[in-house]
Write a protein that binds this DNA or RNA. Structure first.
Lengths: 172, 172
DNA sequence: AACCTCTACGTGATTTTATAACGTTTCGCT
DNA sequence: AGCGAAACGTTATAAAATCACGTAGAGGTT
């Protein structure tokens, strides 16, 4: 929110959302990427939608719709559930935000430029969520589906466990 | 519910829950298996719990807690939500029933004898749910997790699509 | 600019899903 | 028979999501 650095690819090497990184930059890059995609596709990134995206990006964590709604209210937007749900519907539909079924909650997508259907790693201690490539897992599942004649349209992969940061804290 | 055939392994070759099969037998075998496991482990398969299991076995489909509750009421059991949720908690905890996060609903486990954490194939037309082996998918995900230092405790894999039966109907 | 239309927004009300809290009953054990 | 733990039934409430309806704003057409 503070820096106005250009949205060039971050120099800080980041292996996953669990690692420390220049978060302001990370947020800005993500917003820029979404803006670009909206422009290209003729989508309207309205103030509410943008605000919801920002809220989710500021955390790398899953937030419930009602938590988001509280923040919207504080920011002077409408305060009834549909306001949050409509913005989330838009963002999810276009892949800018992912829904975490396990938590009935949402996280900002960390690779908004590529189209993908990721797997999630959810830390049960701090609720941080990282995206992993679900490609291999989906292939494996695809084989099983083919064997019985099931046509997969969408796949959902969520792993719950302990993130490296929380694991360190626990050891100490 | 009608036949009293002995619970020997079914002769009808079944590739998945989507295939036609001797369903009465299938239900009975499953109940027997659960009874056995409860006996061995000193668990109490009380009337409500047993009824909920039967309801779920009769369908090979996901049922919501409130749908189950309606059926319990009809059968003369308590009719308030906790009755259903407590029975479901027990059955899920011991692996006799699985929760389908995507649908906020439940299915009876079709392999109650083996301990496993399955992947699900959910037909979006008929809500039938089949279990697939999630072993390969979990391995793939495990590799990704190791790479970033995340310790997986539980994995959730759900695929949504069209089952072979509904696909045939659609063609016709 | 005036008009039209479609999309998005704001709000009130309601539905669906899930838990909390509390007293009573039943089970398993000694 | 008596004890303690587990399970049940019920009331009440919380949390998550949707419906319905009117209003406002963006974009295109004349």
């Amino acid at each position: 929110m503070t820096s106005n650095a250009p949205p060039e690819p971050s120099e800080t090497a980041k292996k996953s959302e669990f690692d420390e990184h220049d978060h302001d930059l990370c947020v800005e890059e993500a917003i820029e990427a979404v803006e670009t995609r909206c422009d290209e596709a003729g989508l309207r990134l309205t103030p509410v939608r943008r605000k919801v995206l920002e809220l989710l990006l500021e955390e790398h964590r899953a937030m419930g719709a009602y938590g988001i709604l509280d923040r919207l209210r504080e920011a002077g937007f409408g305060s009834q559930p549909p306001v949050a749900y409509r913005a989330l519907d838009f963002l999810v539909e276009h892949g800018f935000v992912h829904r975490i079924e396990r938590l009935n909650a949402f996280v900002a997508c960390t690779h908004p430029s590529e189209s993908h259907s990721p797997a999630f790693m959810i830390c049960r201690l701090c609720d941080t969520v990282a995206e992993a490539n679900s490609g291999p897992a989906k292939e494996a599942l695809g084989d099983a589906a083919n064997a019985v004649g099931f046509q997969i349209e969408q796949t959902l992969v969520e792993a719950e466990g302990i993130c490296p940061t929380c694991a360190e804290k626990a050891e100490a």
